[in-house]
């Protein structure tokens, strides 16, 4: 066993020397090592790359998560801020529109030769049969039953009932509202009454569908009169509650029947009752315009 141990020592020594010499002479390294170096390097690079990519991905994932969390918090805050700004914008928009409406009303009030009181629409009618509304001015402000009510676009209706602080206005599209009016171009005068039952119109004369709820009839216009769809109708001023020349509506249809003396002239009011918010009540003749509200 002793000679074998001595041989082994020699062999180990020679091998160690060979390795040492191998590393001492770079030129000799390349050939034998290159065979095993390439796969080892590839393997090492791949593993290192994979680990690095995993590390980067994990880092990115965490960073993205944190960013997303922050972004969500920020988005919530921004959404709340946006809602506040939108609400503020809507308020400003509403205030601007109101200012514009009131300015138009004021111009009408100043230009009018009549004594008027401005009022705000505050409610409707208890009955579904009447298109009337409540205004916030009453006998305390000089409003009386029968007074005319106008808006910048035209005639609204007539006051039918008054309390000390409120009044009820019947729109021109109601059957109980009767106003002296005339055709603007032909100057033919008649009586405007709301709530007519529209006769069937020939195709050519009916440009718009006639809705009884939003219609009035100009009565006592001769059948032979030259009335056309689209003609303007204004107040005639024959009765004291409305000044002459205020727009009432537009002719929406004309029916001439042989058996009748007068034509049926259907008029669509200028004023949209659904969107009415402020009005002027004509409380009497006189140059001075009173500010009511």
């Amino acid at each position: 066993m002793a000679p074998r141990r001595g041989n082994a020592r020699w062999i180990v020594g020679v091998l160690a020397l060979s390795v040492a010499l191998f590393f001492l002479f770079p030129k000799t390294q390349n050939r034998p090592l290159s065979l095993i170096e390439t796969p080892f390097v590839w393997l090492a690079t791949t593993i290192t790359g994979a680990v690095e990519r995993m590390g980067t991905a994990a880092g990115d994932f965490w960073t993205n998560y944190v960013d997303l969390h922050d972004a969500r918090i920020e988005a919530r805050a921004l959404a709340a801020e946006r809602d506040q700004l939108l609400a503020r914008l809507a308020e400003r928009d509403e205030a601007m529109r109101e200012t514009e409406r009131l300015r138009t009303l004021l111009v009408l009030q100043r230009e009018s030769s009549l004594r008027t009181v401005s009022a705000r629409v505050v409610g409707g009618d208890v009955s579904r049969w009447f298109r009337s509304f409540q205004i916030d001015k009453g006998s305390r402000d000089g409003v009386k039953a029968g007074d005319g009510v106008i808006a910048p676009l035209g005639v609204v209706g007539r006051v039918v009932m008054v309390t000390r602080t409120t009044a009820q206005v019947l729109g021109v599209n109601n059957r109980g509202c009767i106003i002296p009016a005339r055709l603007h171009d032909s100057r033919l005068a008649g009586i405007l009454q709301g709530g007519p039952r529209p006769a069937s119109l020939p195709e050519a004369t009916a440009r718009i569908p006639l809705i009884p709820a939003n219609l009035a009839e100009l009565k006592y216009i001769p059948r032979s009169a030259n009335v056309n769809v689209g003609d303007r109708v204004v107040t005639s001023g024959l009765e004291g509650h409305f000044p002459p020349g205020i727009p009432v509506g537009t002719v929406a249809g004309v029916v001439r029947e042989r058996s009748e003396m007068f034509a049926k002239v259907y008029v669509t009011p200028e004023v949209s009752f659904a969107t009415l918010e402020e009005v002027l009540v004509v409380v009497g003749p006189g140059p001075a315009a009173e500010g009511g509200g």
Binding site: D125, V126, S127, F130, S132, V160, M161, G176
Partner: peptide
Amino acid sequence: LYDRFTAGVVGQH
């Protein structure tokens, strides 16, 4: 009350 707050002829309600 209804007759008071409607624009129609008083008495129906």
